[in-house]
Amino acid sequence: MIFYHSISELVNRANCKSKCISDIVIEDQAEQMEKSVEDIFEDMEKLFKVMEESVESCLKPDVKYASGRAGGEAYRLKKASDGGKTLAGPMLNSVLVKALAAAESNASMGKIVAAPTAGSCGILPAVTITIMEEYKINRKKVLKSLFSAAAIGMVISNRASLSGAQGGCQAECGAASAMAAGAAVELLDGTPDMISHACAIALKAVLGLVCDPVAGLVEVPCIKRNASGAANAIVAAELALAGINSAIPADEVIDAMKSVGNMIPSCLKETGEGGLAMTKTGRTLYGHLKQCGGSN
């Protein structure tokens, strides 16, 4: 039985058996849920399909958020890249497009998979789907990588938190980014140690990120933070795959995330009472929404 209390536990167990982290997680989870391996793959396939649909559904110009604001940012970015305008290059652009699309789908009351939360739902699909397409990776391997991502999320949940109200955005988009970085490393055949370093590097980059949604809604800045979180995952995976190590081990980074989360005042933890929410424009938007009970 795996306890999911540390990333090092996952790495050691995988190394001992010369297996991928996903292999040991799948075996353990089937046992703990009293289901067959085929059944839990089927359950994961259902989630992945909704992830794909959540991206596809928002690659259009006429997106309207639940607040009544107009969206269409994913479409705008895709159109720019399709027209040859991309600074980041087609692969990273595709990651960003997908992250925005799934997050916009969420904001406009589309069907999404909380991964780990609704507010951070674009990061894991963006990274895994893009790598699957770019590297022609088979679907089963992608599903496997999602088990590794989930295992990383479970450790973060057990050691720290996955809730913006408890840990700030570092616990939502940060955790999603660490999970996606781990999945990316596994998809490109990195070692369990590399997964651990990718997870650490991704989290370190967003340590202290506050949750300061304008009007308390999952729109500003959440949608664009999904794009940043996805890019951050690619950066972390790229470094780890090249053999670059995190000086601070993943478990200690997660502990730091927890202690930083505790130090963040509650006005910066999903209450909409600080940060961007309290800027002049943020307050104007809030006033406008409140006047009509949240528009719509």
Binding site: L47, V113, C121
Partner: peptide, 21 residues
């Protein structure tokens, strides 16, 4: 806790606490 507590639920957005709840 299992993997599907971290990945999932499948839900209509935008907020697990304000919409799904």
């Amino acid at each position: 806790m299992n993997v599907f507590d971290v990945l999932g639920p499948i839900m209509i957005g935008p907020s697990s606490s304000h919409t799904a709840g």
